[in-house]
Design a protein around this nucleic acid. Structure first.
Length: 714
RNA sequence: GGUGUAGUAGCUCAGUUGGUUAGAGCAUCGGAAUCAUAAUCCGAGUGUCCGGGGUUCAAGUCCCUGCUACACUACCA
């Protein structure tokens, strides 16, 4: 008796509408495997749900004027609809904001605490009285201690880009109610990972080798265990929207999402299957756990969750195969939620393209070993050439021929040697498909299925039943019998990838749905009669590619040059910064009435004399920033590469000359902050100073570098 | 700046612990066939496996180094 298979896909965070990358990364891959697993006769349970607790939900709720509960209800529904459209066969699709979840999380925590794997750590955090809560780093705002930017956030200053601690802000305020928070001592519970390290490592070594983990899962896990120090990690937070901590002195806190989220797999199972959930989760002897996720989720599933399980002292079912994908990119860029670039779940529904074709393509380009790219063009050709022309055609030509010539009847055949050879070839390939599935090589399995179908097309051509039928009808009938059985096999093997299409084929064959057990049988349809076949899919119209491309490319890309203003500046004075050793303070003539003051970190690379009176390139519309006590009104630009640094020489161009692209008329540009400047990504290309690949000029003079020909400007 | 991952045919990707002449699909070119959604089949070519060193009888694969891209990280002008 084979082991039961418990399958999970990473719980999507409730606030996001998932895009294609999210979908192939976890939910769809896991579904494909779960479907295979069921078909292959393993008792299978596929669990997923939305991860709902945490700061992000609270923040979003405040923004939209709803309660966290309402936000979750709304988005949970969105997720559910999308996955339903994709035909994802969850045995349970739950959520983490349930009483069952609270109960299980607290129970697990009790176990961890009882076994002394919880430590208490003190710290100070801002507390907002009117809001009655501790503030997350991002929720504190105030003036940046470095650049005096007034609206810096507690974790990072949007003005100068530097990383901050909330306690560093000059006039800290609560970003929700604008009142000044007070600093309060607080204590948090930590999970003592160092203490469990040895057990954990033993578990990992075994799981990695027995569960044939992908490379990225191996390396990520090992680097967490060795190269960085495993430290204790906080498992509590000062929030309201979460699982309450059941411990004296901590009752106003909740568990950190990463602690409770993986336990969500368990609680969702329990809510859906209250009588049998332990047979899955507390039965390592006869259950294998397969977990699907994108690579960013690896540490939670290979370290934190297993550590929690071990620490709790229960006899848990622990991850056997960890299937972590790389990322799916979009066209020549990345999926981006904030810029609305790419294809999201809702777009798939509105595209009008059959969900099975999306499934086919996404699984065909599943990023198993390295990042892969989604492109509309590839999508269309892949579906048309690799699926419709191959499998679609084989199914159609076989059933049409059989219907026309034999009225769809399959009679007892008379095998010739070529027939037997072909069946052997198919059996071998099918064994490979099964083997790939067992190693969770979904992409490879699909490739092999296409190969099998192609072999069918070759067989059809070689046997020439349209000729043979004239002189030897029995031979032709035998060929068609084999082909019809092959069509049945394709329906079986295709089911994990394209369930509706598979069902359609079974229907045309006029038989019940079959499973892996019947795979490779070439005699099960004797005496049977198939129905009139229909075309599975019309080809995707390649004329629509451009339309889709435009529709989903996001907003018009901003031209970084619209923001950045550069001028020629002459360094008229230069001295060392009074305190900061690495900075020069220059007075620079930018063509205005008074020279401006700019601080530059060039001490390491240049002597003062080298720079004095030089005409250099200056970023002139940066908002003023205070650097170690000196107010700097811009930035002297230099291009750097490794240890080399070169100031950009503007020759004799007049101070104040505005830099332009070729043939462009200069215009006024508003002040920008350092982050916006960096986004422009100025660089030199083969010695030419350029933005977005276009060369820059000071009047007629093309800006060139001599030392650092290819480098970043900053 | 630090750390990590990656770089294989025109394009998208495979290449298990080092082991013969480095693969697939698409695209391209030539041919065959006409049962089939102008679908199918046969044949053909292509590679400085990012560059440079090294270890080895043997390197796409291991080590060092340079370049490039991406991710994380840092008191980045």
């Amino acid at each position: 008796m084979s082991k039961k298979r418990l399958i999970t896909s990473a719980l999507p965070y409730v606030n996001n509408e998932p895009h294609l990358g999210n979908i192939i990364g976890c939910v769809l891959s896991a579904d494909c495997y779960a479907r295979y697993s069921r078909s292959a006769g393993h008792e299978t349970l596929y669990i997923c749900g939305t991860d709902e607790y945490g700061t992000a939900t609270e923040t979003k709720a405040t923004q939209e004027g709803l309660s966290p509960r309402e936000i979750c209800d709304k988005y949970h529904q969105i997720h559910e609809n999308i996955y339903k459209h994709f035909n994802i066969s969850f045995d349970a699709f739950g959520r983490t904001s349930t009483p069952e979840h609270t109960e299980i999380v607290q129970w697990v925590f009790d176990g961890v605490e009882k076994h002394n794997y919880v430590t208490e750590v003190k710290s100070e955090q801002f507390y907002c009285k009117p809001c009655d809560k501790f503030l997350a780093d991002r929720l504190v705002k105030g003036a940046c201690p470095k650049c005096e930017f007034a609206d810096a956030k507690g974790d990072q200053c949007d003005g100068c880009g530097s990383m901050l601690n909330p306690t560093e802000l000059v006039t800290p305020k609560c970003s929700v109610c604008d009142n000044s928070p007070e600093l309060r001592a607080t204590e948090h519970l930590h999970l003592n990972l160092p203490k469990i390290k040895d057990n954990l490592q033993e578990f990992q070594n075994e799981a990695i080798s027995e569960g044939f983990w992908p490379n990225n899962a191996k390396t990520t896990t090992q680097s967490w265990m060795t190269s960085r120090d495993l430290t204790t990690r906080a498992i509590t937070r000062d929030l309201k929207w979460g699982v309450p901590v059941p411990k004296e002195g901590y009752t106003d806190k909740v568990f950190y999402v990463w602690f409770d989220a993986p336990i969500g797999y368990v609680s969702i199972t329990r809510k859906a299957f209250p009588d049998t959930w332990k047979d899955w989760w507390l039965a390592p002897e006869n259950t294998e756990l397969y977990q699907f996720m994108a690579k960013d989720n690896i540490p939670f599933h290979s370290i934190i969750f297993p550590a929690t399980q071990l620490a709790s002292g229960e006899d848990w079912t622990m991850v056997h195969h960890l299937s972590s994908t790389e990322y799916l990119n979009y066209e020549d860029t990345k999926f981006s939620k904030s810029n609305n670039v790419g294809v999201f779940g809702g777009d798939v529904i509105s595209s009008g393209i059959d969900a099975d074709l999306w499934r086919f393509y996404l699984l065909a380009v599943r990023p198993e070993r390295q990042d892969t790219a989604f492109s509309w063009e590839d999508f269309f050709t892949n579906v048309n050439k690799n699926f419709i022309n191959n499998i679609g055609n084989l199914v159609n030509r076989s059933l049409v021929f059989s219907k026309k010539s034999f009225d769809g009847k399959i009679d007892e055949p008379a095998y010739a040697e070529e027939h037997i050879e072909f069946m052997k070839e198919i059996h071998d390939l099918q064994a490979d498909v099964t083997d790939s599935f067992e190693k969770v090589g979904l992409k490879e399995a699909l490739r092999l299925i296409l190969k099998i179908s192609q072999a069918g097309n070759v067989f059809f051509d070689k046997q020439e039943p349209w000729k043979r039928i004239k002189e030897d009808p029995t031979y032709a009938a035998t060929t068609l019998s084999i082909l019809t059985h092959l069509v049945k096999d394709i329906a079986i093997m295709l089911e994990p990838f394209m369930p509706s299409t598979s069902a359609k084929i079974f229907k045309m064959l006029d038989i019940e749905v079959q499973t892996w057990e019947q795979l490779g049988q070439f005699d099960s349809l004797y005496g049977h009669q198939t129905l009139q076949p229909e075309i599975l899919f019309k080809k995707l119209d390649e004329k629509l590619i451009e339309t889709f491309k435009e529709k989903f490319s996001g907003g018009v890309k901003e031209d970084p040059w619209d923001k950045v203003e550069l001028k020629v500046g002459k360094i008229v004075e230069i001295e060392n910064h009074p305190t900061a050793g690495h900075l020069y303070v220059e007075k620079i003539d930018l063509g205005g009435e008074e020279p401006v003051t700019i601080a530059s970190g060039l001490v390491k690379y240049f002597e003062k004399e080298d720079l004095l009176n030089k005409h250099v390139l200056v970023a002139s519309n940066l908002s003023a920033a205070e650097l170690c006590g000196v107010k700097s009104h811009g930035m002297v630009l230099a291009v750097s590469k490794k240890k080399k640094m070169e100031v950009i020489d503007c020759g004799n161009a007049a101070p104040g000359t505005v830099i332009t692209r070729e043939g462009e008329v200069p215009k006024d540009k508003p002040e920008i902050d350092i982050a916006a400047f960096k986004e422009a990504a100025l660089r030199t290309i083969d010695g030419t100073v350029s933005i977005d690949g276009e060369a820059l000029f000071a009047g007629d003079l093309g800006l060139k570098t001599e030392l650092v020909l290819n480098g970043k400007i900053g």
